[in-house]
């Protein structure tokens, strides 16, 4: 049994503690927002927060999340998270959309740590997230506009 807290709810999971967090979320808890893209830490589609820190859930054993706070896209309800999601919609970022949960989780961690990121900061924080649809320029724009909106308190 592994005890984890996901999006504020406690769960006790009867699976191998070595199972990657991604598959526990998707197959045990039916939280399918975090996506399988590469399985080996190369694409960022599976990004979630562990105690607020972005991690690749495909490469994080469930045991490592035991007794810690996991946040997935479904539970991203911070003010900055919501502002980012709105900015994503306004900038038409998502195309197929498959990578976007992971992109937003990375962006949320970035802006939480660095409220006014520069282009370079954004590139450094986001280059671990692949988008086969090439939405990068829009992501950059959305992060800037969300950071701005957040700072001016429009949405927070």
């Amino acid at each position: 049994m592994v005890n984890i807290n996901v999006n504020g709810e406690e769960h006790s999971l009867d699976v191998d503690p070595a199972m990657p967090l991604l598959w526990a979320l998707r197959e045990e808890l039916q939280l399918t927002g975090a996506k399988f893209g590469c399985g080996v830490g190369l694409c960022g589609a599976c990004m979630v927060h562990l105690d607020g820190v972005p991690v690749r859930s495909c490469s994080t054993p469930l045991a490592e999340a035991a007794n810690r706070r996991v946040t997935t896209i479904e539970g991203l309800d911070s003010a900055i998270g919501k502002t980012l999601q709105d900015a994503w919609v306004d900038e038409n970022v998502a195309q197929c959309g498959y990578c976007q949960s992971g992109q937003i989780m990375s962006a949320a961690a970035l802006v939480a740590a660095n409220p006014q990121p520069s282009d370079k900061d954004i590139e450094a924080a986001m280059s671990g997230n692949l988008c086969r649809c090439g939405s990068y320029q829009r992501i950059k724009r959305a992060i800037h506009s969300a950071a701005k909106a957040h700072a001016s308190g429009e949405k927070s």
Partner: peptide, 28 residues
């Protein structure tokens, strides 16, 4: 008209792709 209709579902994790669909009792 410049709004992608399904954008909201694609930013909150609720959009379902084939890989997300798991009918009851599914084995993998």
């Amino acid at each position: 008209y410049n709004r992608r209709l399904e954008s909201r579902d694609k930013v909150n994790g609720s959009a379902k792709y084939g890989i997300d669909i798991t009918p009851k009792g599914t084995v993998v």
